[in-house]
Design a protein around this nucleic acid. Structure first.
Lengths: 254, 254
DNA sequence: CGCTGTATTGATAACCATCAAAGAGGGTGG
DNA sequence: CCACCCTCTTTGATGGTTATCAATACAGCG
């Protein structure tokens, strides 16, 4: 039903006022946000167009030349990269206000594939126009750097997780991360819907689908979660935090 | 003896011309490089001072407020982060021309510790001065973004490795990476010295010291390497590349 | 020449992947 | 409206890979 409502939105968009940065629901979290959106006008000038994406549609792929970045306006996307051995590693999930393609600024080519997890809308930011706006507005420049710094820090966090943590810890961290995202969107952190299949969670955490499923069941058994398909209710957040931090905790005897 | 020669350099530095970006041996690989160093003058204006570091000395630590970035002028550093469970994950190794602290632009605090692997010299880049130069010079700005993009891409590569690759593949990739660094410095890629202990390699690859040691021995047995303490000679680079790509390859029977 | 930190090697077991199969949800077409 | 199909998810049995524990060898340095 989620897809239906989004389709409806798109169908009636022609009748609505045109999409701008000022009427974007993610404007406070995006570039140009904060400080009452002082630089929002400049960001608007950097946006070439808005691009709707269907679920599973690919925004860009690895090694493609990069002339533009993309800001998520609605929906959710993932980035992933196929390892030499064929297995796919999910690198990150992107919510409204976040920017895709930053890794391409190094080589001029995207370093991963970007795929829509749900029907989405992204804002196209051609790099030349963006650069011009950045060099004319120091606040926007610093926000852009903050965004890139955050991206690096996120990846570092993932490295720590993938390099050291046991499967339990990884999943607990992931769930807490999702809860935080839910809270950031203004909803309750105790209950949220996973927008991605188990396979993507597994590929993000460096595990297999089976392990994810087993671990979720284990969390359900100890009463930490209630899971129904992709709906998650966190019943014992403190237990999750404990599991994210320590390697032991929560072995069931049934 | 490496340490001795560096100490000697430092002792006699007072008699030498002062350190500048123009006489830096890493100037072509650093910010402001390329294009005959058109922006090198601007970078020079961003450098507050040069800071010598002894081996094992810490440049900054996690959660410390960040007001400046650091460019490596001489030596080599690592960044690392202690996981909640106490184990340390090495996030990256930094050679001359590379910039440390980029992850702090997100939160304003460094996301990891930085430690010198050898006696080193870093250039201090206060963020306000750097920002001013960046907004006045589009070329320098793009180089800065390229550097951040490269940093993100590197971390993504590490995520793929940590999430999917077997121990053999990880070590093979690491060795090839080191060989490429050696080549980038103008030396032969077939022979190089590891500047870090096995423990750091293990912490970088998400493995244990014992595994590193065992895998190096295995590579020696199949004739891919000659290893003497931290000196590495690559005898069969194509075998390493094969191992980095595929999960199988090279099982000895002795 | 002994000391300390670093590196190697071996034996065992924990953890998670793999293989195999069954169960649930959602949409389509009869 | 129901049967069907497809994808996603769950659960079980087994084995491989790598961590862990323990002990020895080695290098650099005082």
């Amino acid at each position: 039903m989620h897809a239906i409502s989004l389709a409806h939105v798109r169908a009636t968009r022609a009748a609505l006022p045109p999409a701008t940065c000022h009427n974007c629901s993610a404007r406070t979290r995006c570039l140009g946000g904060g400080e009452e959106g002082a630089s929002l006008e400049r960001l608007e000038h950097s946006v070439a167009r808005r691009l709707p994406l269907q679920r599973h549609e690919r925004l860009f792929h690895r090694d493609e030349s990069c002339f533009q970045l993309y800001a998520v306006r609605e929906g959710q996307l993932k980035t992933q990269r196929r390892a030499p051995n064929g297995i796919c590693q999910v690198l990150g999930f992107y919510l409204p206000g976040e920017v895709l393609g930053l890794d391409a600024l190094g080589s001029g080519q995207y370093g991963c594939d970007a795929v829509a997890l749900t029907d989405s809308v992204v804002c196209v930011l051609p790099y030349p126009a963006l650069t011009r706006q950045l060099s004319e507005d120091v606040v926007l420049l610093q926000q852009f750097h903050r965004m890139m710094g955050t991206e690096i820090a996120r990846r570092q966090g993932s490295m720590v997780l993938l390099g050291n943590a046991r499967a339990q810890q990884r999943l607990a961290s992931f769930l807490l991360e999702q809860a935080a995202c839910s809270q950031a969107r203004g909803e309750t952190p105790c209950s949220f819907q996973l927008r991605m299949p188990r396979e993507d969670i597994a590929a993000y955490l460096g595990l297999t689908v089976e392990s994810i499923s087993r671990l979720l069941s284990a969390l359900r058994r100890v009463g930490a979660l209630r899971v129904s398909n992709r709906m998650v209710e966190v019943l014992k957040p403190e237990l999750l935090q404990q599991m994210a931090a320590r390697a032991d905790a929560a072995h069931d005897s049934g």
